Structures are given as structure tokens and as C-alpha cells.
Amino acid sequence: MKTISRIFPLILAAALMPITIARGEEAKPVPPTGKMGFVRLVAAVAQGSGTLKIKIDGSDINPTGYNLGDVTGGLGLKAGTHEVTISREGTEEGTTKVKVENDDTTILIPFAEKVPASDEKPAYWAIRILRLKQLDVPEGKTASFVSVSQTPELKVEMRDPEGKWTPVYVKRLAVAKAAITYPRGYVPLKSKDGNIESIPVAQEGNYVVLLYDDKDGKVQSLNFQDQKFLSAD
């Protein structure tokens, strides 16, 4: 049975320089003509087995699926409303409608949420979809922390070049921003569960740190840089 996922609209600052991370084979839809926008997928479903599958308007955009941590480029779609369904074996699929606007990019972050047991059904994992919208950001380097962890608020610490650790508090399904003072290189991060993936910094722009729970419930992270305008792969 399909579950209509809750949509959590957020504003995500856009970066000035593009970096596309594609750890898995990525779909390459035929670019539509006329007005068009883009959808970008960040796979954060740790629960379940197999690869993550995504369908847009009933069409499977990548039959081989996506692995945890994959970040796609911009998937070009005609401007208008599209139905997106995301599934992974061992979880209940999530479906939502996404309004694609001309020259705009919507970032979709599917993640798993544990649904408590009821009289009719034992506890299970269901896919939810967090939606991020984009805005331009001022010059400089910024870290945008986004949490889909089950923890209501996470404390993440970010180290500066002098070795000082600065706390950043990130509420669940929300964005917290912090300035990056490193000129380039890797910015160390840690959470209550220990060190997490460092932020690779080069050009000015917005660096996104996505916080999620692994299968054991420990906080993990993945990073990517984002910009407002993306070209279809």
C-alpha cells in the first residue's frame, strides 16, 4: 500500500560553484523542451536492503537504483507538478507530489522514520521525503547542516584552523548555518557518536552536511556542494 509522505519544505542556501557527486550510475533523462526545472536526489535511507529506487510519474529513472550517500545531478523535468515515489526493500515506500518551477531546483532527501507499533501492525520503517528549496547566498564559505536523524536536536562541533571546536545545534528536519573559516582543505566535524565525515572545502560557496542515523542508530554524515542553477546530466 502506498503511503503519501509528509513534505517538509525548507529553504536551502545555494552555492556559487557546482560539485556533482555520483557514486552510483545515474539516470540521464531526455531534456524536455520549453519551460523546465530540476529535481536532485540525496539518498539517506539507511534502513532496509538493496538499492533505493525512484520513480517520477511512474517511470523508473535508474533501474539499478541508488546507494546510501549517492547525490545526483539535476534531473530535468517539465515545469509543473510531478509525482515522485521512492522505495527500498524492507521499508514502506513514500510518495509525494513535487511542483517543479522554471529554472528552479528542488532537492529531495528520502530518509526512514520508525513508525511505532499499533494494535493492527508491528513497528516498521517508512520512507519520508524532506524537500529543500534554494536561494542565493552571500560571498564566502558557508556550511548548511540538515538533519533527518531521529534525535530532535543534534549537537555537531566544527573545528577552526586554530584547533577550536565550535558547537552547531541542528534541529530535526531543519537547517542550521555556520561560517567556514578554513581557506581550503578538510574541515573536521564530530558528533556525540564521535568523528563524522569532514567537509572538503575549496571554492567559496555553500557546503551541505546531511546528518542521518545509520542502521545502528549512530549519527553519520555526507557532504555535497550545491548551487542554484544545475544542468541536466
Rank of each mutant, 00 (worst) to 15 (best):
K78A: 13
R184C: 07
L108Y: 04
D70W: 02
L230Y: 04
F111P: 00
K228R: 14
I56P: 03
V146S: 06
E153F: 02
P9R: 13
D60P: 02
Q225G: 11
P9F: 11
P110N: 03
I180W: 07
K177Y: 10
D57T: 09
S198N: 14
A44P: 05
V175R: 09
V39K: 06
P63L: 07
E139D: 13
D136F: 12
R128S: 12
G48V: 02
A22Q: 14
I196G: 02
I109W: 04
T81G: 01
T20C: 05
T72N: 09
N223S: 11
V219F: 02
E113R: 14
G90R: 00
G205N: 09
S118E: 08
G69V: 06
G37K: 10
V148A: 03
E92L: 02
A14F: 04
S87R: 01
K192P: 01
P116D: 08
L135E: 13
F145L: 06
Y169W: 08
S144L: 08
Y182N: 07
K28Y: 08
E101D: 12
A232K: 09
A126H: 05
P183K: 11
S147G: 02
R6E: 07
V146T: 07
K192D: 06
L189N: 09
L52T: 12
I7A: 13
G76I: 01
P31Y: 09
P18W: 01
W165T: 12
K228F: 12
Q225L: 10
E162G: 10
S144I: 01
R6I: 06
Q150E: 14
M1G: 13
G205Y: 09
G217V: 07
V146H: 05
E197R: 15
L41S: 07
S191R: 07
T33V: 14
I56D: 02
L189D: 09
R131N: 04
F38N: 12
E83S: 14
V148M: 03
E120V: 12
L135P: 00
E83H: 04
I127R: 00
A143K: 03
P167Y: 06
A232S: 14
G217I: 04
N206V: 11
V209C: 10
T91K: 00
R128W: 00
I56G: 06
L189E: 10
I86P: 00
G185S: 08
D216R: 13
A176L: 04
A27W: 04
T181Q: 12
L189A: 11
I61H: 06
G65P: 02
I180K: 05
R88A: 01
P188I: 13
E139M: 12
A117Q: 10
D213V: 05
Q47M: 14
V71D: 08
V146Q: 03
A46H: 09
I11D: 09
A15I: 01
L210Y: 14
E89G: 03
G58K: 10
F38M: 15
D57F: 04
Y212N: 02
V42H: 05
R159M: 15
I127H: 01
D193R: 12
A202D: 11
K218A: 14
R131G: 03
A179D: 14
E26Y: 06
A15P: 06
